[in-house]
Design a protein around this nucleic acid. Structure first.
Lengths: 344, 344
DNA sequence: GCAATTATTGTAACCGCTTACAGTATATTA
DNA sequence: TAATATACTGTAAGCGGTTACAATAATTGC
């Protein structure tokens, strides 16, 4: 049995029918006589034949594949979004391809990477928006516009308002303001924010919420409490450690709001190195509620942003064709790393 | 400008040339006159035209897409493997699609899921082998065989010997035996193994290594020190907690080898709840060296299995066509959770 | 200035499948 | 039993590219 070729023609020939008939059994159409069907099915089984989705895509104009653009999966936060999207897509019969964030933000010589994505003729793409230097902002808008000619788009994350696409977003300003409120109600007055780079939408909103929270409590914005950090634990550790070292202990913050749980871990390490006890002398709160948060010492208070639901909703929105902007739910996960301010 | 259709025919028509010529400029062939090329390129740019990779795939028999089969991305261990594979694939011009582990192990009514994967006509697939109940073993072999008719396969992880495919694997027996050695040299005699289910290749080898290590040190295998656990932190916590509760403190192990870092976190939590200090009263060692390991209290000793390299090597092996079985490197990451046995 | 090259461009077949439509066999009706 | 409806099956035209080969245009040599 020569299996080098395994096409609908081979099946048709071996079963002694036309390719149209094979196609019909493949699709389970009813207008095929029982004995023909059985004969064809026997051949299909014997040869382990599977129709090429490539060829099918030619006529159906559909790939049953969704794309997802993510900055990096090593951050469990994105892994959760991916998983939510992926599981949902799978249930609905789609497979999922991953693409680098680069594909919609950078320009490589003459080729527009977004169009590279377009080549794939996916049935849709979810784009997880992340930090983007302002000079790339125009390019993102252009890429999205071009990409949209080829497939529907859903954005997810902290999306700039001027991007008019279906979106699942969360409101970092609201969340951060809420965190400040809570810390204030615990008696904290020296609250640090260890955040990301300027120009980042997500971070921008955090800053907005941070200042709003401080204002509400009539607390001053203190420059040195706004700490600049990358997104990893190492970054957070280095940045917060530096901050502590540069301040007199009397001026040390009594609470710190971290960009995310990884940075929060770093802050905790830095605090420990400076001899601070958590939460007695320093309250720490993260964001994302990673799997390891409950296992840190003390267990880390965090914000659950329901990443898996976000991913799932993004897929549903994408396939529904609706053009809505939806706000994601979020909630407190209070653990022991935050406590009342015990310092005068 | 009607952009509803954007095919090579549309471009050819608008540029006043034949589709063959458009195809030539698309592929950057040299035998096109400079002014024709420019005319065509202008049209392509104006219309944001991108050739369909689907149509291309019809003739080229290539999709420039690799598949990866993974149990779950929420475990950062797999996220690392994925990332390594993905980055490498991307560099080489491939995109990456993810598929569920189910696709090669389960059977859904009449459809063989492996063949569903085959439909995609990928340029290759990396299958990350995980726990598999023995009754599904035959089915896995069958699936792989059928799938292989359609695309090359590389296996990764703890792969059974009777699966004859190119493989990147690590030797859990060697690693575990090595761990026991080290714990013994630290003076430990009551060493627990918190491992996974029976039937799991990975676990099987751990048990082999565990027993071999004990034998070498002339230590007895103690049933109650072989703890059965799932792979999550909660699982580890529950399992080890139960073990401690069921033993008299005098019989508590002085060292515990955990399935992975997540389980190790759980063990640490359980130990704390039982009032054990780490590492003074209990040494803990995990595996996978997750990002959070250095931030646990105390920092967790672990084994770095170089997951990203594994992913990368899997892609290289897949595309090279070589048929080799390669062992992955691994190394100790010694931190403070392991120490000399201080209990007589 | 004309034949022989060489450079450029076009035609048509093909990749593997779907599907509208046509054709043939079988069943129903009168 | 012939006419007609119904069930099944086959033919051929796409889908959007690639590419061998043929055709045409531009150069070159003498």
């Amino acid at each position: 049995m020569n299996q080098s070729s395994n096409t609908i023609y081979d099946i048709a020939e071996e079963a002694g029918v036309s390719i149209a008939t094979v196609s019909r059994v493949l699709k389970g159409e009813k207008n095929v006589s029982e004995k023909t069907r059985q004969r064809v099915e026997a051949v299909i089984t014997r040869r382990n034949y599977r129709p090429s989705s490539i060829a099918r895509g030619m006529t159906s104009k559909t790939t049953h594949t969704l794309g997802i653009v993510l900055p990096k999966l090593l951050n469990p936060n994105y892994a959760m979004i991916f998983t939510g999207a992926y599981e949902c897509a799978r249930r609905l019969g789609y497979s999922m391809s991953m693409f680098p964030w680069r594909s919609v933000t950078e320009n490589e010589d003459k080729v527009n990477p977004a169009l590279l994505l377009a080549e794939r003729r996916l049935d849709g793409v979810i784009i997880c928006v992340e930090y983007l230097p302002p000079e790339h902002h125009e390019r993102l808008k252009q890429s999205l516009k071009e990409l949209q000619q080829y497939m529907p788009i859903v954005l997810i994350g902290c999306v700039p308002e001027d991007l008019d696409y279906p979106t699942i977003s969360y409101n970092m300003a609201e969340i951060t303001c809420n965190i400040v409120d809570e810390l204030v109600s615990l008696g904290h007055e020296k609250i640090a924010l260890v955040g990301g780079m300027a120009g980042d939408q997500d971070q921008f909103r955090r800053d907005v919420g941070y200042r709003r929270g401080l204002e509400k409590a009539h607390l001053p914005f203190v420059d040195s409490y706004r700490v600049w950090s990358g997104g990893s634990a190492e970054d957070g550790e280095a940045a917060f450690s530096q901050t502590l070292s540069s301040l007199l202990p009397a001026h040390w913050p009594t609470a710190v709001i971290a960009l995310n749980d990884m940075v929060a871990m770093g802050c905790m390490a830095a605090a420990r190195q400076h001899g601070l006890r958590i939460p007695e002398e320093l309250s720490v709160i993260g964001c994302d509620n990673l799997f390891c948060a409950p296992y840190l010492q003390p267990p880390l208070t965090s914000i659950d942003t329901h990443q898996q639901s976000m991913g799932q909703e993004a897929v549903e929105l994408l396939l529904s064709g609706r053009k809505e902007r939806k706000n994601a739910r979020w909630e407190w996960v209070r653990r022991d790393s935050c406590g009342p301010c015990s310092i005068r």
